[in-house]
Lab assay of single mutants.
Amino acid sequence: ETFPLDVLVNTAAEDLPRGVDPSRKENFLSDEDFKAVFGMTRSAFANLPLWKQQNLKKEKGLF
């Protein structure tokens, strides 16, 4: 299941849709939104070091 970017960005855990893991908001973006937000594919993002993934998520309001 995916959700629009505005539902996930800068949203407190208690305000997220049911079933969304607040530590993994990026997994609930569509592939198109994911690429638009991070400028890379999911596989490229997954290959980044964890610290870099976290920094990007913070920068984009998805942490």
Rank of each mutant, 00 (worst) to 15 (best):
F3M: 03
E14P: 09
K52G: 06
F63R: 03
S30C: 06
E26V: 02
T11M: 10
R24A: 09
K25L: 15
V37N: 04
T11I: 10
K35M: 15
E32W: 10
A12V: 09
R18F: 15
P49H: 04
S43Y: 12
K35R: 13
P49S: 09
P22L: 04
D6V: 08
D33Y: 04
A46V: 13
A13I: 14
S23L: 15
T2L: 07
L5T: 04
L62W: 05
N27F: 08
K60C: 10
R42Q: 08
T41S: 10
K60H: 14
N10L: 06
L5S: 04
S30G: 06
S43F: 13
Q53S: 03
K58V: 12
D15Y: 06
E32I: 11
N27I: 08
F3N: 02
Q53Y: 00
K57R: 08
K52D: 11
V37Y: 04
L48N: 00
D33W: 03
R42G: 02
F3C: 05
L8N: 04
E32D: 12
F63G: 15
T11E: 06
E26W: 02
K58W: 09
K52P: 00
K25M: 14
L8M: 05
D15L: 13
N27L: 12
G19V: 14
K25E: 04
K60R: 09
K58D: 07
F45Y: 07
G39E: 12
D6A: 13
S23T: 14
R18E: 15
A44V: 14
K60Y: 09
D15Q: 06
R24F: 14
T11H: 08
L5A: 04
S23N: 15
K60F: 09
P22R: 02
V9P: 02
M40C: 08
L5F: 08
R18I: 15
S23D: 14
E59V: 09
W51A: 12
R18Y: 15
E1N: 14
P4H: 05
A36G: 09
L16K: 03
G61C: 08
L50C: 12
T2S: 09
P17D: 07
D6M: 10
A13W: 14
S23Y: 15
L8R: 01
T41C: 09
L62Q: 03
D6Y: 14
S30H: 07
A13G: 08
Q54I: 15
K35A: 14
D21A: 03
L50Y: 12
F3V: 03
V7E: 06
N27A: 14
K60E: 03
Q54M: 14
D15S: 08
G39H: 13
E32L: 10
R24W: 07
F34Q: 00
R42W: 04
A46W: 13
F28T: 02
L16F: 07
E26L: 01
Q54E: 14
P49C: 05
L62K: 02
V7T: 09
E14A: 11
F3T: 03
L8G: 03
N47G: 11
L56Y: 06
W51L: 10
K25R: 13
F45I: 00
A36N: 12
D31S: 06
L48S: 01
K57C: 07
W51H: 10
T11F: 07
D21M: 02
P17E: 05
N27W: 10
P22Q: 06
Q53N: 00
E32K: 11
A46Y: 11
L50K: 11
P17A: 01
K57I: 05
A46G: 11
L62A: 02
F45K: 00
E1I: 15
E59P: 01
N55L: 12
S23K: 11
E32F: 12
T41L: 10
P4Y: 03
R24C: 09
R42N: 03
K35W: 15
R18M: 15
F45S: 00
A44M: 11
N27Y: 10
L29H: 01
L50V: 12
S23P: 04
Q54F: 08
F34D: 00
V37F: 05
V9T: 09
M40Y: 05
A12Q: 09
E26C: 04
Q53D: 00
N47C: 14
D21E: 06
N27V: 09
S43K: 12
G19L: 06
T2C: 09
G61F: 05
A46I: 12
L50P: 13
A36R: 14
T2Q: 07
T41I: 10
V37I: 09
T2P: 05
F34T: 00
P49V: 02
D33A: 05
N55K: 13
L8D: 03
P49M: 02
Q54P: 00
D33P: 00
L5D: 03
F3R: 04
L29F: 03
W51I: 12
K52N: 10
L56C: 05
L62D: 03
D15I: 01
E59N: 08
P49F: 00
D21H: 06
R42Y: 07
S23G: 12
L56K: 08
F34K: 00
D15K: 05
F63P: 03
T11A: 11
K60I: 08
L16A: 03
P49N: 05
D6T: 10
L8Q: 01
K58I: 15
L16I: 06
S23A: 13
K25F: 04
P22V: 07
D15P: 02
P4T: 09
E26P: 02
D15N: 07
G39T: 05
W51K: 10
R24Y: 11
K25D: 04
T2V: 10
G39I: 02
D31L: 08
L16S: 04
G39Q: 14
D31K: 07
D15W: 05
K57W: 06
A46H: 12
Q53W: 00
F38V: 01
F38M: 07
T11S: 08
A44I: 11
V37G: 01
L29V: 03
R24H: 15
F34R: 00
K57S: 03
R18T: 15
A36D: 13
S43H: 13
K58C: 11
F34Y: 02
D6K: 10
F63D: 15
P17V: 02
L8Y: 02
G19E: 14
R24P: 03
T2I: 11
A13P: 15
F38D: 00
V37Q: 04
V20S: 04
L62G: 04
F34C: 01
L56S: 01
E59K: 10
K57N: 02
G19R: 05
K58S: 11
T41P: 11
S43G: 12
P17L: 04
D31C: 06
N47K: 13
P22F: 02
N10E: 07
K57T: 03
N10D: 08
S23H: 15
V20W: 05
W51C: 14
P22H: 05
F38W: 01
F45C: 00
N47A: 14
K25Q: 04
F28N: 07
L50N: 10
L56D: 01
V9R: 07
E59F: 06
L56T: 02
S30A: 07
L5R: 04
P4A: 08
D6Q: 10
L62T: 01
R18W: 15
S43D: 14
K60A: 15
E14G: 08
P22E: 08
A12F: 06
Q54G: 07
P22M: 04
N27E: 12
K35H: 15
L56A: 06
K25H: 02
E59H: 06
E14K: 09
N47F: 10
K52H: 13
V9L: 10
E59D: 11
E32Y: 10
A12P: 13
F63W: 15
V7H: 07
T2W: 13
L48W: 02
A44F: 10
V9A: 10
G19D: 08
L29M: 07
F38A: 00
D15V: 01
K52M: 14
D33H: 04
F3W: 14
N47D: 14
F3G: 03
N10I: 06
D15G: 06
L16D: 09
N55P: 00
P4C: 06
A12R: 13
F63A: 15
P17T: 01
K25A: 07
P49Q: 03
F3P: 02
F38L: 08
L62E: 02
D31W: 02
N27K: 13
S23W: 13
V7A: 11
N10A: 08
E32G: 10
V20P: 07
E26D: 03
L8W: 01
P49E: 08
F28H: 14
L50S: 11
L5K: 04
G39R: 10
F45H: 00
D21N: 06
E14F: 02
L29G: 01
P49A: 08
K52I: 12
E32R: 09
S30K: 06
R42E: 02
D6I: 09
D33F: 01
Q54S: 11
N27H: 12
V37H: 06
L50M: 12
R18A: 15
N55D: 13
P4E: 05
A46M: 14
N10H: 10
N10P: 04
F28Y: 15
K57Y: 04
T2D: 03
L48A: 01
E26A: 01
V20L: 06
A46S: 13
